[in-house]
Design a binder for these strands. Structure first.
Lengths: 67, 67
DNA sequence: GCCCCTATCTTTAGGCG
DNA sequence: CCGCCTAAAGATAGGGG
């Protein structure tokens, strides 16, 4: 976006796509946090990507002792 | 954010909070759409708020004939 | 691959009709 | 309440080490 506008389509180059994912998922989770906190609402999100083993889950799920 | 910085805390004034919600949830869903499209990943989000009757669900769920 | 920089694009608070 | 405007804050592509 900055140095170049964003084109609303798949980023073809895999390296670029991964870099973009890394930056954007962070921004996305921040936005989620802000929306929840500023506006006093409840929400959840889950992101599956080939870039992390575990899905990203929002809000954080605290691991309780499993059984 | 613009005219004033955002303070990371509940917006106390109810009217302001609702206005903020209305703007932000839109931006949030757009970011979700971008993340999904640009980076070729799968994700879902759900937002409960007192400002809409139905929860906002991402991605769109097409209503099939209910039984 | 990572983190850091920064120019530039995008989002949005506050205000008006 | 809703939609539009605009300045300023925030996000981020591209590049460097």
């Amino acid at each position: 976006m900055p140095r170049n506008k964003v084109i609303f389509a798949l980023i073809e180059n895999e390296t670029d796509r991964k870099v973009s994912y890394k930056k954007r998922h962070k921004g996305f989770l921040k936005k989620a946090q802000e929306l929840m906190t500023l506006c006093d609402i409840e929400m959840a999100a889950i992101i599956y990507s080939p870039y992390s083993d575990e899905p990203k889950v929002f809000p954080m799920v605290l691991q309780s002792t499993p059984f």
